[in-house]
């Protein structure tokens, strides 16, 4: 019996031992990952970690130095980009400004010589799907950034690609728009049962859209799993930092926090910004260094006894302590992750 890792993945994308080089630079270093059909995977990593190169290699835009890329069991080596049946959506959409919105969306259908009536109906359907009914005759240059990305998404989905490749699809948008479009993207991908590989440096984008996550650093895959798994147990302190944890504690301070949280495991402790809460019955003590009111809560920086300076929150309803005051703190176990000693 082959072990699971040796099995050829029959349904969906299977990247095995992939290495991509730019001259002497190893951009993607021996990466393996599997993406079953119908799922959405986010590859998360800082800029320059090789995630975009990985995406371009899957698209057929960068030749691999070694390793293989398969889809539904078929090796894609030597298959040119336009024959892979994928679609790639760039960070800035890369709409064709010399064509109307409808003509952009129709582009992949025209390429495949679909009948005119079918193209028109499909374009209307897609524009409705991305919430841009009636935009067909507009020029891309007249659209806002979010609208452009929606058009790019509609264009990429037009022929129901076997695999949708998304290169930081939301990064160019502002925060509010990013959140809304992230929700929509997830809904649209689920409704169309699209298999998608998304790369991003924004953990919120990744969590908002993906069924699976893979963390990349310096060309290598550091960790992969469901968002909940990755979230609960970052592979190391760097991974925790990249996932949005505000602080990682080690040694004696880590043990203090673990005891206060009532956790028996051992290891490094990663804390979210709201992991510590002002609570008169809390097991930790500290002195407030600074306080800043926000609509949801008062955000504090507290010198925690035996631990050090950490972020904490005081929820509305309780009187917010000012700088110099002594407070008691409780630890919210759901906002703490333990990194086992490896």
């Amino acid at each position: 019996m082959p072990t699971p890792s040796e099995q050829v993945f029959e349904q969906g994308l299977d990247v095995r031992d992939l290495t991509v080089r730019y001259g002497a630079l190893v951009a993607v270093d021996d990466v393996s990952l599997a993406l079953p059909r119908g799922e959405v995977m986010a590859v998360l990593g800082p800029s320059g970690c090789g995630k975009s190169t990985l995406l371009r290699a899957v698209a057929g835009l960068e030749p691999p130095a070694s390793g293989r890329i398969r889809f539904d069991g078929a090796d894609l080596a030597g298959v040119p980009t336009h024959k892979r049946g994928f679609a790639l959506m760039f960070q800035d959409g890369q709409l064709f400004d010399h064509r109307s919105v409808a003509a952009n969306v129709a582009y992949p259908l025209r390429i495949r010589r679909r009948p005119r009536g079918e193209v028109g109906a499909r374009v209307a359907e897609l524009l409705e799907l991305v919430g841009l009914e009636g935009y067909g005759d507009r020029g891309p240059a007249t659209l806002s950034g979010g609208e452009r990305q929606r058009v790019a998404l509609a264009r990429a989905l037009a022929v129901e690609p076997r695999l949708l490749l998304l290169d930081e699809p939301l990064s160019a948008l502002d925060a509010a728009l990013r959140e809304r479009l992230g929700h929509d993207l997830r809904a649209i991908l689920a409704a169309s049962r699209t298999t998608a590989l998304l790369v991003t440096h924004d953990h919120e984008e990744a969590f908002a859209v993906a069924d699976r996550m893979a963390l990349m650093r310096a060309g290598r895959l550091v960790q992969s799993g469901t968002p909940a798994e990755v979230w609960a147990a970052p592979a190391d302190a760097d991974a925790a930092g990249f996932l949005g944890y505000a602080a990682v504690l080690d040694g004696e301070p880590a043990e203090v926090v673990l005891r206060a949280a009532g956790l028996s495991s051992a290891g490094q402790v990663a804390l979210r910004r709201s992991a510590l809460r002002v609570d008169d019955g809390g097991p930790l003590t500290g002195r407030v260094v600074s306080a800043r009111a926000t609509p949801e809560a008062t955000r504090l920086v507290v010198m925690v006894t035996g631990v050090g300076e950490l972020a904490a929150v005081a929820h509305p309803g309780t009187p917010a302590p000012g700088p110099g005051e002594d407070v008691k703190l409780a630890v919210d176990g759901s906002r703490v992750a333990v990194i086992p000693f490896g």
Binding site: A59, P80, T81, H82, A87, I111, L165
Partner: peptide, 14 residues
């Protein structure tokens, strides 16, 4: 160049 890459990724031959 990504305009051309977008086109090929959508199924256009070179």
């Amino acid at each position: 160049d990504r305009q051309r890459q977008a086109a090929t990724s959508l199924g256009a031959s070179p």
